[in-house]
Amino acid sequence: MYQLAQSAQPDPMLAAPFRRAKPGLFGSRRKSPSKYLELPKGQDGQPVVPGPISGFGGGTWNLDGSQATAPDGASAMAQPSAQPSQNAGNFGMDNPAPSTGPLGGSMRQPFDYERALEVLRGDQRKPKAWQYALAAVGDALAMNSGYRPYAVQNLTAARNEQAQRQREAAAQVLGWQYNDYARNQEADLRAAAPFSSGRDRVQFDPATGQSRIIYDGAEDFQTYADELGLEPGSEEYFKAVEDYVLRSAGPSAYERDVQLDDHRTGNDAELERIRNGFRVGLEQLRQTNRRGMVDYRNANPAPPRSRRKASSNSVVTVKTPAEAERLPKGTRYRGPDGVVRER
């Protein structure tokens, strides 16, 4: 009479364009409560029901038709539409407030592991004791007619599944926490690793945000000044430091430049003095040599250019003694021998 549908056949129920993930056995959700359930009425004519009643379509309703509790899945479906964009990309984060700064607040906002664990483990429905007892009674009665009991098995399987999901969620979150801790630890260690600044080794403390010098290496100028045996802080010490840093423009180099210039100037002056002495000696020698030389000038002395009368002071040169005899009396003359006589 009634054959079960074969698995090879297409399933029209699964192919139906259901808009809800859990549409029920017949693919539709009934929202109205049962109107045909007659309940005992009280003295005021109202049904005496201590609480809302459940309909076959999921959810519960009050007697006036208003919905008391949402159907299964309604809250999960309504949640995304309530805040469509605010929660986007903020899975597991508390208070997705707009953050400031280039890091977007990710370094200051801790991850909400509690929320993540809650989402991962899902709805932890644990069968109640009365459900186990009820399932036991149902299975016992069904077994009498040869049916395979499944209620207790399903409840146990559901409980095991929830427990497994709980364990997996806890392990997942624990893994995240460990990875987070490891990354933080690694970042701290990386940030706290000593680094070189000049000749110094500097260490940054992530806890305080301060850096400290763990090894103060001597700079080259300090080594130079120390090797000279100078006392740190003294004037000579800083002079040596300036010498090392300023090199050829340092104070010592300047002094040596001045000394060298003075020395060269002295040499130049001495050389010039010597050269001038040579020049004077040479001129004197030249004058001495010229004095004894018989030349045209000596042989032909220049005529006297004095305005005084020649007779008074002039000396007449004669070549022969006869010329001297012809000179007037009282005339001075120079003979061929060069001796000046008076006539």
Binding site: P127, Q131, Y132, L134, A135, V137, G138, D139, A140, L141, A142, M143, N144, Y147, P149, Y150, A151, N154, L155
Partner: peptide, 9 residues
Amino acid sequence: GRLLSILAI
């Protein structure tokens, strides 16, 4: 009994 089992589930 089946009804009880289903109600439990």
